[in-house]
Amino acid sequence: MVNQEPTGIVMMNLGGPRSLDDVEPFLRNLFLDREIIQLPLQERLGAFIAKRRAPKVRGLYEAIGGGSPLYDWTTRQGRGMVERLDVLCPETAPHRFYLAFRYTDPSSEQALRQMAADGVRRAVAFSQYPQYSCTTTGSSLNELWRTARRLGLAESFEWSVIDRWSAHPAFVRAMAAKVREGLGHFHESVRGDVVVLFSAHSLPRRVIDRGDPYLQEVAATVHDVMREIGGGHEYALSFQADVGPVAWQGPSTESVIRALGGQGRRHVLIVGIIFTSDHLDTLSEIDIEFAEVAEQAGVTDFHRAPAPNDDPVFLDALAEVVADHLRDGRGCSRQFTLRCAGCDNARCREILNPARAHRRTDPGTERQPALPAHRSTR
């Protein structure tokens, strides 16, 4: 029997400027977010850094067509996901998706207001970052809950959270398929000599040292994907997109490409292991900047594995992740309840008005009692 009330799937992501005029506001919102970067006099210094970087970043977006395609790709992914979910999970259908971007529109406020207008009661906060980090998934969840409280919608939805999904077999298969597709760009005679270079967005070292699980989850994804592929290719992990006056996780992707060239490696496949759709990090930094670095370093055969975008195999994976979550009876992953050792955010790992009970572990304290699941009055 089909549920008469829609199930809302909130797809949380960073967002990106859809036009050149949106670049500076996007950067300002990014550099004012203390959950990613902490600066002295953040309001002033963050705005100053954004203003200084805006002309250069505008030029980068101009080179890839004038704006980020992230909105379009996420919309296509959401549409394909809910079409599949209605078939996989008729008991929770119809399913509707809502975009909640952290630094651009559509915002959490827009998503929540539309959900309320659509009569959604059961809602899933679905992070579009497969690997968990407090700076991405954590920041997006905190913003979602803050906004719901501010709008007076704290009790309007029963929430559960898909906080990480990089180990889900369907995601691993989808990413492995993209790596195989990338390897297909190399002539068969040299394919066995290709170094597979996985590149992930970097994080400030301060965040990693605090106990953020991102680094270990990215490394685990790399391991799972290579095991799925088989074939014994050499591979490495590096990090890109470090900006701002803080120390970042390394090694940098640029330095690894130069080192590979210096070692006489001529065939390199780069894989954006955390990027589920094309945007500035793939279309500009990898396809343009790193391709130039590779050429300078003597890497004569340099290719990128395609991003999943709206590949049907990846859309299947998104739907399977949500379907498994809706059926498994848990409000979040088991790991979500464990806060970082250096966490100082009292609301971290919270689920607002949870549809299912969950516990949090607070550093230095006894484990909290289970937070009660909301009892529906339907």
Rank of each mutant, 00 (worst) to 15 (best):
E5N: 00
M11F: 05
N13C: 06
L14T: 14
S19W: 07
S19M: 11
F26H: 03
F31Q: 08
E35N: 12
E35F: 02
I36R: 14
I36F: 14
L41K: 11
G46H: 01
A47Q: 14
F48D: 11
A54Q: 05
P55S: 03
E62F: 03
Y71D: 15
Q77D: 10
G80E: 10
G80I: 05
M81V: 07
V82T: 15
E83W: 05
A93D: 08
F97A: 10
F97Y: 15
F101L: 09
Y103F: 06
E109F: 01
E109K: 06
S127I: 07
S127P: 08
C134H: 15
T135L: 07
T137K: 13
L141F: 13
E143M: 01
T147A: 04
A154V: 09
W159E: 01
H168F: 01
M175V: 14
L183T: 11
E188M: 12
L197V: 05
F198D: 06
F198I: 09
F198Q: 12
S199L: 14
S202F: 03
V207P: 01
D209F: 06
D209R: 15
T221R: 00
H223M: 11
R227Q: 15
E228H: 00
G232K: 09
L237N: 05
V243W: 08
G244Y: 05
Q249V: 12
A259P: 11
I273G: 07
H279W: 08
L283H: 08
E285P: 12
D287A: 10
I288M: 13
F290N: 15
F290Y: 15
V293A: 10
A294D: 02
E295S: 15
V299P: 10
D310K: 03
D310Y: 02
D316K: 01
A317E: 11
A319C: 02
V321H: 03
A323W: 04
R339G: 01
C343V: 12
C348Y: 02
R360Y: 02
G364I: 01
Q368H: 13
P369C: 06
L371A: 14
T377S: 14
R378D: 04
